[in-house]
Structures are given as C-alpha cells and as structure tokens.
Amino acid sequence: MTLEEFNRCVDEYADSLFRFALKSLRDEDKARDAVQECYARLWSNHKQVNGEKVKSYLFTSAYHLIIDSSRKEKREPLLDPAKAPERAHCSQYSDLKEVLNEAIQRLPEIQRTVILLRDYEGYSYQEIGEMCSLSEAQVKIYIYRGRVFLKNYIGHMEVLI
C-alpha cells in the first residue's frame, strides 16, 4: 500500500469509520481517537495490508477498539424494550431517527456492530463475520435479533407517542 493509496483511504473511509465509531462509542472524542488509532495502525502496517482489504482492516480495527472500550466501561445495554419508556421520556423524541438512535444504543454491542456494518457499509454476512470473528450464521442471528429488538422498540414508542 503506497502513501497515495493510504491518503486516498482517508478520503474514502474516514467519515464512515467515524460514524461507525461514534454510533458505537457514543462519544465524539473517543470516536475521533478511535479513527486516529485505526489509521495509525494501518500506517504502521501499510506495507503488509492489501489495498483491497483496507476498508475491512480499518473497520476490524475499529470494532476491536470499540470492544476494548466497552469492556473498560462495562456498559450493559438495556435489553428489555418494555423498560425503555420508563427511562426515556417520549416528548424528547421528535422523529423516528431519534427513536432509532436511542434503540440502537440499547442494543448489545455485537448486535449493534453487525447492524451498523450491515446498514452503514453494506457488508455481507461473510465480511461482517470475518471482521467480528463470527460465523455467517451467527451474524445472521445477531442481525435478526437486533432487528426484532429495534422493531419492537420502535413499535412500542410509536404506540406511546
């Protein structure tokens, strides 16, 4: 991977990587640091990284950083959608996007990651599995569970609104 290719990767993937990190970490500074770290790792290994696998390398790095950060903070997502309205007042949601963002934050880390990779970046089950060290079937299951959770959360909030 050449210097020019590296800088092109910055242009192409920095924003999407930042969005992915921000959605996962919920902290702009941490997300920015994660992106910096990802590109620093890429640069330190740029001679070994295949140009076609750069995006996957970046998101895999980001995923591991997110996991490490989550483990440090020991955050536990809220799994029961029925409890959500008790903690979040309905009036603070002006549209579906906000409700969905709230729901995303309540997903378990792995489910949120696979859904973000799927929706934001359009990765296949296999690619997501390679990034997250999961089998294709596991990815499908996590996506399925995540979607069902999101659907139930949205449906629940819509009823309340």
């Binding site: 990587l17 590109y39 969905l100 819509e158």
Partner: peptide
C-alpha cells in the same frame, strides 16, 4: 404494519456527520 416497522429498522448514515480534523490523518512524504 409489522413489516413496515421492520423496514424502519434500517439505519441510514448521516451524511452531515464527518470526521473532524481529517487532515490530521494524512501522511506526508
């Protein structure tokens, strides 16, 4: 309605959300 709710679970990235100070990521020779 159920199917509609499922469709709404698809996340759409915010195009306005971009990496701040992206210039710092570039490497120069």
């Amino acid at each position: 309605t159920e199917v509609s709710l499922f469709r709404q679970t698809r996340l759409v990235p915010d195009p306005l959300l971009s990496m701040p100070h992206r210039d710092s990521l570039y490497r120069r020779r």
